[in-house]
């Protein structure tokens, strides 16, 4: 009985589709896509092709020489550039420190809010907590510059009250980089908390209740009930955060300008400098092409996790 209803439903579902001529359906579906494709080709594909082209030219805006085709020289130059290799490795150190700290802190705070899902004023508390991640990095940098200022800053005031010497974190050789990680952590820990809450929310309530009835110990509860469901969203959160940390530019550019020396020079900051301070358009495009491939690789991993999540849900 059940099966025949199913087949009947299926035949009803398939019927109108079969009647429709394929070509008309195709025409309509592409027609709907046309405006997006128009924008995509004009504003995304075209600049990308342009960028690829530029990467093979010796083209400096400020020089009188005409742009010259030089093949892969920009790429070989850039791979041989020690300074740039420094920014790339610095970016990865930054990314590792930031993402690990933010993930751990984010999970801790997330669990705290999860256990407090009936706390008074939860929505307001979360609003205050989530504010840092939606403030534009330009404002964040300026705000923190003020707070960390060696003479005017409120943090240094407390440092001096406690009897320590005032310090200028943003121009200090050893402190500048950790300060950048610290401010980034302030900005993005709320995001990892948000993802933790979503991950915990994706665990079916029935399974949690069953675990409670079985009096499952907490370690087994995490390993056998929570983790199999929560891992996907948590994974997506960590990856999104990694991608964003990799892109960090405004924050470093405004707060430290990459300094002191090159202590906080991240790859995106170098790239901006090549393009708009020394106007080496060909060279900066070669770096951009390199970064684009990293982005495409990260996108693939992201979609891989997303598909694994969908499969496990189905």
């Amino acid at each position: 009985m059940a099966k025949s209803v199913e087949t009947l439903e299926k035949s009803i579902k398939d019927a109108p589709k079969a009647k429709k001529p394929e070509s008309k359906k195709n025409w309509f579906s592409w027609g709907l896509l046309a405006p997006v494709l128009f924008f995509f080709i004009l504003m995304s594909v075209l600049p990308t092709i342009w960028m690829f082209g530029l990467a093979f030219y010796d083209y400096t805006l400020t020089s009188a020489n005409k742009p010259k085709l030089i093949g892969f020289k920009n790429f070989t130059d850039f791979l041989a550039n020690q300074q740039l290799a420094g920014s790339v490795s610095r970016t990865f150190i930054f990314l590792l420190c930031a993402v690990i700290i933010q993930t751990l802190l984010g999970i801790l705070i997330g669990v705290l809010f999860w256990k407090n899902d009936k706390m008074p004023g939860r929505r307001l508390a979360l609003t205050l907590f989530f504010t840092p991640m939606v403030v534009t990095p330009i404002a964040t940098s300026l705000f923190w510059k003020f707070i960390l200022d060696p003479t005017l800053g409120v943090i240094n005031y407390f440092v001096s009250v406690l009897g320590f010497e005032r310090f200028d974190t943003l121009t200090d050789q050893t402190l500048a980089f950790p300060t950048l990680v610290f401010v980034d952590t302030w900005m993005w820990t709320p995001f990892m908390t948000l993802m933790t809450l979503a991950a915990l929310g994706s665990v079916p309530k029935a399974e949690l209740e069953a675990a409670q009835v079985d009096r499952l110990p907490i370690t087994r509860l995490i390993r056998t009930v929570i983790w199999p469901h929560a891992k996907f969203i948590l994974g997506l959160g960590i990856l999104l955060r990694t991608i964003d940390a990799f892109k960090t530019m405004d924050l470093a550019y405004v707060m430290t300008g990459g300094g002191p020396g090159d202590r906080t020079e991240l790859i995106a900051v170098s790239l901006y400098r090549f393009a708009f301070k020394s106007f080496k358009l060909g060279y900066s495009s070669a770096v951009s092409v390199f970064l684009m491939f990293i982005a495409i690789a990260l996108t693939s991993i992201y979609l891989y996790i997303l598909n694994a999540k969908k499969k496990s849900e189905a």
Partner: peptide, 29 residues
Amino acid sequence: RYKPAGTDFLMFLLLSTRFVPAAAFVVPY
């Protein structure tokens, strides 16, 4: 609704544009 050929690939391309550092695209724009 129609899942035209290349849907997955186009969706992938659209998402990847948001993952490239902004500074990489400033020059061509």
